[in-house]
Simulated assay, not measured.
Amino acid sequence: MIYGLFFGDSITYGEYDGVFGGWVDILKRYALQKYNEGSTNELILFNLGIGGETSEGLVKRIPHEMKARNSADGNIVFIGYGANDLAVKDENQMIDAEQFKANIETAIQHAKLYSNEIYLVSILPISEKIDSKISTTGKIRTNEDVLVYNQILKDIATENALSYIDFHSAFLEDKEILLSKDGVHPNEKGYGMMAEIAIPIIEKYL
């Protein structure tokens, strides 16, 4: 029995998807279906996404979460952060780029105690409608910052020989169709596309 642990914010959690419950929930159902159809391994997926969380929260909880959900048969870890870290509120970035890099690297060190299978998940592009504008929560996000933080994730993945899941590129062209009304979270179509991209990854463990 292999465990898949998905750490992240509201996009990992699946917010704004009233149809499928988000990309991780789609993967959960897929893994269960494959097991019922006779796949070799039972893959149990845990959605550990928390709305509004930054990489600061991840660093605090990952040692405990990993310890509590550690399978003797192996663990797969997905880390998807940055959309909240890069947001600017009251003229301050929630978590600046340097600290973001340090936090993700710390989290990876914790994850490596339990797993060699670690995936970094890219930040999604944001809608042009909200780029550089103050949201209802008082936060400003820019696509420019998204590129900077995604580059940090790519570099960390390369340096640590980890896999990088590039949802950003997949969304870029049709983002206005794949994002929900708030311009940050995917809609059900967007979450469906994320799951399609991620299914071949989890297939390897089934």
Rank of each mutant, 00 (worst) to 15 (best):
D17G: 05
D131K: 12
A83M: 15
K139A: 10
I62D: 00
K34W: 03
I44Y: 10
H64A: 08
I26K: 11
E42W: 09
L124P: 00
A68N: 15
F20C: 10
T40R: 12
I134Y: 08
T137N: 02
Q93C: 14
L45K: 11
H64W: 09
L120F: 06
E37F: 13
E105C: 04
L32Q: 11
G22F: 02
L58S: 11
N70K: 09
L86G: 00
G80H: 02
L45D: 02
D25A: 14
A102N: 04
E15S: 15
N47P: 01
K34Y: 04
K139P: 10
N70A: 01
I130M: 14
I118M: 07
D73C: 01
E128Q: 11
N84T: 11
G18N: 15
S115Q: 11
R141P: 06
G82E: 03
L43F: 15
E91N: 11
D90V: 04
S115P: 04
T106R: 14
Y119A: 13
A87W: 02
E56S: 12
I134T: 15
E128L: 07
E91Y: 02
I76R: 06
G49L: 03
K34V: 07
S115H: 11
L32K: 10
A72C: 09
E42P: 00
F78A: 09
T106W: 10
K34N: 05
D90L: 09
H110T: 07
L27M: 04
F78K: 11
A72G: 10
K133F: 12
E98T: 13
A102W: 00
L120Y: 04
D73K: 07
T54V: 06
D73G: 04
I140W: 00
S135Q: 12
G82A: 10
G82P: 07
S135Y: 10
T106Q: 12
N92R: 10
A102H: 02
S127T: 09
K60H: 08
K101H: 14
A111M: 05
G51V: 03
K133I: 13
P63C: 02
R69P: 02
N84G: 02
I104Q: 05
G22P: 04
A31Q: 00
G138W: 04
L86N: 09
V24E: 02
I130S: 15
I79F: 06
F20Y: 14
A72P: 03
K133Y: 06
T142Y: 06
S115D: 08
E15Y: 15
S132P: 09
M66K: 03
Q99A: 15
F20D: 08
I44D: 04
N36H: 13
F100E: 02
K89F: 00
F100N: 03
N92F: 07
E98D: 14
N75P: 01
F46M: 01
H110F: 04
G38R: 07
K60Y: 11
